[in-house]
Write a protein that binds this DNA or RNA. Structure first.
Lengths: 193, 193
DNA sequence: CGTCTATTTGAATGTACTCAAAAGCGGTGG
DNA sequence: CCACCGCTTTTGAGTACATTCAAATAGACG
């Protein structure tokens, strides 16, 4: 149940087995069925979620009712609305499952207790935040300068696992185009060989 | 010289005057003239820069030679290429000054010494990173779901000081459109009253 | 097998871009 | 102080890329 998390954390920071054991008590396992929500917009986001298996997504709904996906999370990734989680403000995002999934939840207060119990984890979450921020910068850069086709190719290259696991219309939403356009882009690409 | 920085930091964390004094020695003041560079792409980004006055920008140049602005920094803001700064990898960004400016530079090793000398600053930089990450998320969300006009209006609302200080073509680059399009959007908006 | 969802395709439309040129503005030097 | 130069902003005309609306086809799931 915690094997994946253990590998995930010790990839980034040094931790004795004993220290890791102390961590596990702060997490709560939850199974989330396809289409079930972990967060509805308007609620406060209470959890950091680490995905053991399955796939979740975080998205907004605009004034026309269209969804825009900000993040996918598959096995070995974290998902949350950090703004709401940190500030306690109601979220403007939704998080739901694209497949039956299992996550490990870390509540805000549990996280603080975790930092007390194993201070090295502060460093872990700082590193995690840094790499997320850098990834966000790259995505902004892409959105500004790349065509839809380029954005799709970058997506395929960056997240090959997601391409296999996630429906095409969800990927279209992530890169900011309609499913129809993505279908045409893929047709073009396969014509090029 | 350090007044602005002092106010900036103590807005976010508690710090005794004595502690703040210890901080100042790790910074180096530099004046940057309009069009001068703080970072050229291909170089490693050595500094975190705090802007005392003036205005800098960080941008990429795409394969067509067009610039895309990722960040502005005026008085009381930080600017750096965090990816390069943290990883030591050559940067793909440029940082230059849009106006004559004065910055306080914090080198990577100086920052580590600073953390030794005043551990509370670790917390400060974590908070800074968190708010930057959240802002980046909002910008991605905008880029996905909003029209050029909406993006401009959001920009005006979010950064009123920048609108006054920065040429229009630079704002166009930041929101991901051409200067011509922004000119037309503004004309439309003023026609609506 | 039937239903629901995802993908593909077509035709018409629209938003923003490109190319080109004019007008406006600010600073510099004669 | 004015003339000139460089840069920014505006405007026009034509174009391209992606969207919308609509419908057909393909796939997945019970």
């Amino acid at each position: 149940m915690f094997d994946l998390l253990c590998i995930h954390i010790t990839k980034r920071i040094q931790l004795t087995p004993e220290e890791f054991d102390r961590c596990t008590q702060f997490f709560e396992r939850r199974r989330i069925k396809k289409r079930q929500f972990l967060l509805h917009n308007g609620e406060v986001c209470r959890y950091l979620a680490f995905v053991n298996h399955g796939c979740l997504r975080r998205y907004t709904i605009d004034h026309k009712g269209d969804e825009h996906i900000l993040q996918f999370a598959i096995e070995d990734w974290w998902i949350t609305d950090l703004n709401s989680f940190l500030s306690g403000a109601p979220s403007t995002h939704n998080i739901d499952a694209l497949q039956n999934s299992e996550v490990l939840l870390l509540e805000k207060s549990a996280r603080e207790n975790l930092f007390e119990a194993v201070p090295a984890l502060e460093r872990f979450f700082r590193l995690l935040l840094e790499s997320n921020y850098i990834a966000a910068q790259k995505r902004i850069s892409q959105a500004l300068s790349a065509s839809a086709e380029e954005r799709y190719l970058t997506f395929v290259e960056t997240y090959p696992r997601l391409v296999k696991q996630v429906p095409q219309n969800q990927i279209a939403s992530y890169i900011g185009i309609t499913p129809q356009s993505l279908s045409r882009i893929r047709k073009e690409l396969s014509a090029k060989r």
